[in-house]
Simulated assay, not measured.
Amino acid sequence: MTKFKKYVSILLSVSLIAGIAPMDAQAKTVEDKKAVVQTINEKETMTAQAETGSSETAAPSESPSATPSASASAAPSTPPSAAPTATPVIPSQGKVVVDAEDAFSTTAGSDGKTCTISGYKGNAAVTTLYIPKEMGDKEVTAIAANVFAACPYLKNVVIKNDIDIAAGAFPAGTEIWAKSGAKAQTYAQANGLTFHPLDSTASLTGKKDASFTKGTLTWTAVNGAVSYNVYRKKAKGKYSLYKNVNTLTYTNEKLAAGATYTYKIRPVFTAADGESIEGVDSKEAAIALTPAKVKKLKAKGIRGGIQVRWARNKNVTGYQVFMKVHVKGFKTSFNRVKTIKKNKVTGYRCKMLVRGMKYSYRVRAFKTIKGKKIFGPFVMVTAKAK
């Protein structure tokens, strides 16, 4: 590469020497002489660049009469400033509802039991947002400032627990849905935001049918609600949305006899943008599809035994009676002594007992459905034999 540079330098020098004489001889005016001097200066500059390996400036024309172009002037030493980066525009996606814990990031409280929502990592085009009551095993007690400021289409925020909200947490125009009198209402009023009360139904009751295969729920109306969501769980399972109704009663059919179902009701409201907003949970109501406890159970010592009686239940098939004797210093257990297959028989007399001994009785009702006995809870009573 070094030899090549030297070769270029020699060629340019020869060309320079060869070109000076004729140009000088032909210069008849001051202007011609000036042109010759300028051309010589340009060629000297080219020679210096070739020797130092510069490749940034283009070689000028070798014609002695050529006028230097504007591009031959030195480039400015300061590069032009970069154009400002435009703020990215978030396109609207229509109605977007976010109701998931993984859309939020939190900061744990000092007590280890609470947390503050300090960031949002969900869909920025969200229109309706549900603030979770809990994040993992920690209760949400606050929302930090400007967490949702970058959500331009956020219209409805649903807050079901009483939490602190920092200034600027939500963009202008957001409508707040929360319990009446909660901190969220104070925040909305202080920031000029529309507030909607999310009140729950005042009462909820459940009643099983005599068939033990269906149950009926009844609840009170909530002002402004357009319908109600019925949530249900079986035994110790998890709640899931089971039905949406626009009445104040609902009968759940085709249930499993012997099982227990628990329900809660959430009122549903309609926002200004047409979005459905779920309200606050009602209190739970359980329907146990089993016979009820026997009522008015009594035991009385009679001559040579004990008489046990209870109230009749017309919705059952019959009753079972268990008995145990109390012996000092010994642990005894109950044993079944009688199965009564008619619900109108509401008593049992136990004879041949030891006078003065204490006996306990447990009685339960049962219902036979498709050949299977469905039992109610036990009720116990104690008496001494005479």
Rank of each mutant, 00 (worst) to 15 (best):
Y7P: 05
Y7K: 11
L11H: 09
L16N: 09
I17V: 15
P22L: 09
P22A: 13
M23F: 11
D32P: 07
A35R: 08
N41R: 14
Q49T: 07
T52P: 04
G53L: 13
S54H: 06
A66E: 12
A72D: 14
A82I: 13
I90H: 04
Q93H: 09
K95I: 13
V96E: 06
T107H: 00
D111Q: 03
Y120N: 00
K121T: 12
T128Q: 14
D137N: 12
D137Y: 01
A144N: 06
A149D: 02
A149T: 05
A149N: 08
K155Y: 06
A167D: 15
A167G: 14
A169D: 05
P171G: 08
E175Y: 06
S180I: 03
A182M: 04
N191K: 10
T194C: 05
G206C: 14
G215F: 11
T218V: 15
W219S: 00
G224M: 08
K233M: 11
K234F: 10
E253H: 10
E253P: 01
K254I: 09
K264F: 13
T270A: 15
A286H: 06
K293N: 10
K295C: 06
K295V: 05
Q307G: 02
W310P: 00
T317S: 08
G318V: 01
G329Q: 05
V337P: 02
T339R: 03
K341S: 05
G347R: 03
Y348L: 04
K351F: 00
I369H: 08
G371Y: 09
K373S: 09
K373M: 05
M380N: 10
V381S: 07
T382E: 05
